[in-house]
């Protein structure tokens, strides 16, 4: 017959598992049928189990959320490089790139783009690529390339970005006016 000492070690888990009848606890059930001492321990453990299952969470102070958010704000200085939210500056940057391409690849430069040569390094065989100096083709290339760059930027912004909320827009307005004011002062000096 199983003694009380062996059984007592199993009782907390037996009670926590809901006092199942079968499986590994069969010996425990059999012992409890004949041992009032261990049965009294089960009753105590059951009381503990029920009491702890009703253990409520004590609410924290009502203003704790605001204090946490304020602490987070204090921890979050604006990075100097981050002049604008990325979902604004990425499309803006791509548009600037397109604009730069428009300025530097205008038809006035097409005459310099006559023939470009590369030397293939391994075989040392001269390789020549002929460029057409046709202004219409260069213009078409420029339009295609700058449109593609713009498209990639705007697509990225639409897929990953989101519309800035009022707070962000205020932030952007503030920073832009600040930059404009500084530039104005610099220009005045």
């Amino acid at each position: 017959m199983t003694n009380c000492q062996d059984i007592q070690g199993l009782l907390p888990q037996y009670v926590a598992d809901g006092q199942p009848a079968a499986g590994e606890y069969a010996a425990v059930r059999a012992h409890l049928n004949s041992c009032t001492n261990c049965l009294a321990t089960v009753e105590l453990l059951q009381y503990v189990e029920t009491g702890l299952s009703d253990w409520p969470l004590q609410p924290a102070s009502p203003d704790l959320t605001n204090r946490i958010l304020a602490a987070i704000d204090r921890e979050a200085p604006i990075e100097p490089w981050r002049l604008l939210p990325w979902n604004i500056w990425l499309p803006a940057l791509t548009l600037l790139v397109a604009l730069a391409l428009a300025i530097f690849l205008t038809p006035s430069m097409q005459g310099e783009l006559g023939t470009v040569s590369w030397i293939e390094p391994v075989k040392a065989v001269p390789l020549q690529v002929q460029f057409s100096a046709d202004p219409a083709l260069l213009l078409a290339l420029w339009i295609g390339f700058s449109t593609a760059v713009c498209g990639i930027g705007i697509t990225l912004a639409l897929v990953h970005g989101r519309l800035p909320d009022e707070e962000e827009l205020d932030h952007v307005r503030h920073r832009l006016s600040d930059k404009a004011h500084r530039l104005w002062r610099l220009a005045g000096q």
Binding site: P12, Q13, A16, T41, E43, L45, Y47, L52
Partner: peptide, 21 residues
């Protein structure tokens, strides 16, 4: 599981000690 079971046992023992059960 061992920590939990010892804690349950300890609480049962203290309940008995204070005479709640």
């Amino acid at each position: 599981k061992a920590h939990l079971n010892r804690a349950r046992n300890a609480l049962a023992a203290s309940l008995e000690k204070v005479g709640i059960r």
